[in-house]
């Protein structure tokens, strides 16, 4: 059995607390605060303590799903993206760009967040964009 510890940074908000993942046989099992990290000095909030939970959560979405006849069905990325594009275009045409808002998540990277706001402003044409970790 292997057990190693991987230092990382909490992705939940902009504070940037140092965390330590307990990895047993390649699977993240527990989060500990990184004691020697200058930001949090060995302390965490409730979200940070549970940082490992979503990675292996059975509720985690691992591929695109499209709702058909009220039920979510597995789909390919092309199908999903095309469908989303079609629907967004129609909504924008019928109700204007401000009828759409985009909420992005702390669980994606900075770059992805940048892209999301670019997409919102440039492609959809609205300033309705926000992020969950506005601490």
């Amino acid at each position: 059995m292997d057990c190693e510890f991987v230092p990382s940074v909490c992705s939940y908000c902009g504070t940037g607390c140092g965390v330590l993942f307990e990895v047993i046989d390649g699977r993240i099992n527990r989060t500990l605060p990184l004691k020697s990290h200058p930001v949090n000095q060995g302390k965490l909030c409730i979200k940070g303590w549970n940082l490992h939970e979503y990675i292996n959560s059975y509720m985690r979405l691992k591929g695109p799903l499209v709702r058909e006849n009220g039920r979510l069905e597995k789909a390919t990325w092309d199908e999903a993206v095309n469908q989303a594009a079609r629907r967004f275009t129609r909504i924008k045409e019928e109700h204007g760009p401000d009828s759409i808002g985009v909420l992005v998540s702390a669980k994606i990277t900075n770059e992805e967040n940048y892209l999301a706001q670019k997409f919102t402003r440039a492609v959809i044409g609205t300033n309705n964009v926000d992020h969950c970790a506005r601490l």
């Binding site: 059995m1 292997d2 057990c3 190693e4 510890f5 230092p7 330590l20 004691k35 020697s36 990290h37």
Partner: peptide, 10 residues
């Protein structure tokens, strides 16, 4: 010691 931090290891 990893990346300057003293951390546990198995």
């Amino acid at each position: 010691k990893l990346d300057g931090h003293q951390i546990p290891h198995g």
